[in-house]
């Protein structure tokens, strides 16, 4: 599953590039959510063991052979909560965008130059 690792890496890079070069505030937030997806893909891939099944017990995965048959449950658990937090953080960023727009009537990052060097 090296391919998903590479995919996550490419998504991370596209998102970072978007955050650094785009002028529109919405595009910056979209770049952030693409980075989020890429990082989650990488973490889940690291927990994957080829040929093994989901960490849930059923008829085939019995308590006796569970350790030999399941993938790593810890990355799944971490990513699970991280996705929910990602939504809340995205909503927080978007509400800042709306507030900024109310103030200055502009979506371009170029118009907010208080901290420009």
């Amino acid at each position: 599953m090296r391919y998903t690792l590479i995919l996550g890496f490419i998504l991370f890079m596209i998102g970072l590039w978007a955050m650094l070069t785009r002028k529109n505030l919405f595009k910056i937030v979209i770049g952030f959510s693409i980075i989020d997806t890429g990082v989650h893909l990488i973490i889940v891939t690291i927990g994957y063991l080829s040929g093994k099944t989901a960490p849930i017990l059923d008829k085939l995965v019995t308590p006796a052979n569970a350790v030999q048959k399941v993938v790593d449950p810890i990355p799944s658990a971490l990513v699970l909560t991280a996705i929910v937090i990602g939504l809340a953080v995205t909503a927080l960023m978007l509400s800042y965008v709306v507030r900024l727009y109310k103030r200055r009537k502009s979506l371009s990052i170029e118009d907010y130059r208080e901290l420009k060097w």
Binding site: T4, L7, V44, S76, V84
Partner: peptide, 17 residues
């Protein structure tokens, strides 16, 4: 892709959120 990587819990969350 999460479903293929056998992480159904993550797949559900990602699809809904």
């Amino acid at each position: 892709i999460y479903l293929i990587l056998s992480a159904p819990d993550v797949a559900m969350t990602e699809a809904a959120i």
